[in-house]
Design a protein around this nucleic acid. Structure first.
Lengths: 348, 348
DNA sequence: CCTGAGCATTACATCGTTGGAATCTTCGCG
DNA sequence: CGCGAAGATTCCAACGATGTAATGCTCAGG
């Protein structure tokens, strides 16, 4: 059986509370006593029981990271940074999948407190985040306090801390780049419609539209490809559908495809390769996220890069601050981005 | 403040223990009482406090999943299944990264006790797993009990539960397939050497060698590409090195490349595309793992498929069993695999 | 030598849940 | 109608750590 404070206390000839004082170091302990306790601690290889500590003072040392789809490359990279950086702060990461289910997100929030979690980092796909925000407001009214939450990604600002890339700006820049290089019919992959609606999608779409407008171009609704999941498979299948449709209708192909994630771009590149449509000669393709595979796509993918590690860092910092000061005003941290030019775009 | 069993009990007009009985369902409760309690439960949106429960019965409901590199696609897919399936069993997943550091693995094991973890699922890259095994043996001698551990992947059997694919057999089959289709000079990417040594690598190499021997071919050490990390980037760089070397030395190119993971195959495909070496016409490429991106590689990648979900399922089942019966003999579960034939292999 | 200030330590209660034992109900059967 | 068994419910204690309040100790100053 593992040693408890009692055992340590007995060995050191002091009371359990003194041992606790030594461990936590807030109450002063005489040097000589401290030494005795510390040696007993070492001798018994004492490890505090987090359940007990958690029960007593409500801190578990765990924080939850909830991502919409854990199997994407983007999630994996993000998760890695979170785990590494959380570790440095003495936190462990409890991984959760929110899916595309708003209810799941709410559930995560309400269960957080009980599931040994000190805080929550949420990456909502859906605008449904507002559901959580409403919860937040409602809880405030009830005098209940939700666990500290930081949102990764853009949501309606309902007084919740958030960390994100400026999606509309990035999408605008990327679209503008395509326009500058002579593209006129730019399809998007990852758009929203009645069936599928995500905050990220809406914001990137908005940036795309802004760039078109700026250039005096009009959006072609037919070139909006909606993918129910942001995976290569879904993107490939939906994008194939677009090509089939254009072919049957005798419509011209787009001259560029702006995929809202690199993962989807991989699917699109595959479809194009299979159909003998050359990238970038016949059609340009760009992505978003700069996942590890992007540089090794065929051809290497032009995309939007941002530092995922600093997202994790900023989110953890914000969470720590929120835990320390529950009533501080909500922060909104924007992570810088840049276009990475590789081989998937040609000048027309 | 969250509702406790006391609150629920008061509302339902019963004792806290009865509420507990309803929740846990081991002690019988009269139907009418149960109903009253359940309605109170729902009304107060009761959620058990895991800290208290953990303190009382020594279970935290958390298990740790430690993977060598969280940023790989393979890890992501695995993590997803673990999170989903663990959830079904009422467990939350605490994610950890073991890196390629044996000490880190040992640390994870010892930290498990501290960090509210009921068990540990480890995917060791290195044979260093034996370090943990030694810990295990040592701990036994000391009368200390390590937390329940299940290993994903193949390690020296030191009495630890393991779940894995039969790597040597799969590698043998894949190599044999390449030989049957007329390939004679098969490079491998992901081999081991003095600097980098991993259990998985060694076992797949062994299978490759066995197939060559069976076919009366001899291994060419020059065609063994060692990658310090199993990422597209590392594979691309090391494989490029091989091609450069062969070119300078005037050696002939291999006619096939067996990458020990799909991630590395993506890097290899990129390098070949960039150099104008056509796949599969000039060179065949195969992978291992069947990650989601494999089917969308260019060309679609022939690889070894196995059900990652059933790995997660088997590991969780084994862990549950181990927790229930700490002294049961160690199990060794082999997950079936199969070759998936796509477009990256041509008959010669 | 006594007193009181100030610091160090201890006793006790408590967090929420659940085993175990004790108590209370209900119901069948003699 | 009474008794006992089975079933349902309650009471109490304990899991381990720690905040709070009370106690003990040391030492300076009168």
């Amino acid at each position: 059986m593992r040693a408890t404070v009692r055992d340590v206390a007995k060995l050191a000839g002091v009371s359990p509370k003194t041992v606790s004082n030594v461990i936590n170091g807030v109450v002063p302990v005489r040097a000589e006593t401290r030494e005795r306790v510390e040696s007993a601690l070492a001798q018994l290889d004492y490890v505090p029981n987090m359940s007990a500590r958690g029960l007593r003072n409500g801190r578990s040392g765990n924080i939850a990271l909830a991502l919409p789809d854990l199997s994407t490359a983007y999630s994996a990279e993000l998760a890695r940074h979170f785990v590494e950086l959380a570790h440095e702060r003495g936190w462990a990461i409890q991984l959760e999948q929110s899916g595309n289910d708003p209810h799941r997100e709410v559930e995560l929030v309400s269960r957080a407190r009980t599931h040994l979690v000190d805080g929550l980092i949420l990456n909502p796909t859906l605008l449904s985040m507002s559901v959580v925000a409403q919860q937040n407001a409602q809880a405030d009214l009830d005098g209940v306090r939700l666990p500290p939450i930081v949102v990764i990604g853009e949501v309606e600002p309902y007084g919740i801390d958030q960390v994100h890339v400026d999606s509309p700006a990035a999408a605008r820049e990327m679209t503008a780049h395509l326009i500058e290089t002579g593209h006129r019919r730019i399809a998007i992959v990852g758009g929203s419609d009645d069936r599928f609606r995500s905050a990220t999608s809406l914001l990137r779409h908005e940036g795309y539209r802004a760039a078109l407008t700026e250039a005096g171009l009009t959006e072609e609704p037919a070139l909006n490809v909606v993918a129910p999941e942001w995976t290569p498979a879904a993107a490939a299948s939906e994008f194939s559908g677009l090509l089939d449709h254009l072919e049957n209708a005798g419509g011209a192909l787009p001259d560029a495809v702006f995929c809202f994630t690199d993962s989807m771009a991989l699917g699109v590149l595959h479809v194009l390769a299979k159909r003998g449509i050359r990238v970038p000669d016949d059609m340009s393709v760009v992505g978003f996220d700069d996942i590890g595979e992007a540089a090794f796509a065929i051809p290497a993918l032009t995309t939007v890069r941002f530092d995922k590690r600093s997202i994790a860092d900023a989110a953890l910092t914000a969470l720590a601050k929120r835990i320390a000061e529950p009533d501080a005003p909500a922060s909104d941290i924007v992570i810088p981005h840049e276009l990475v030019h590789r081989d998937s775009v040609a000048r027309r």
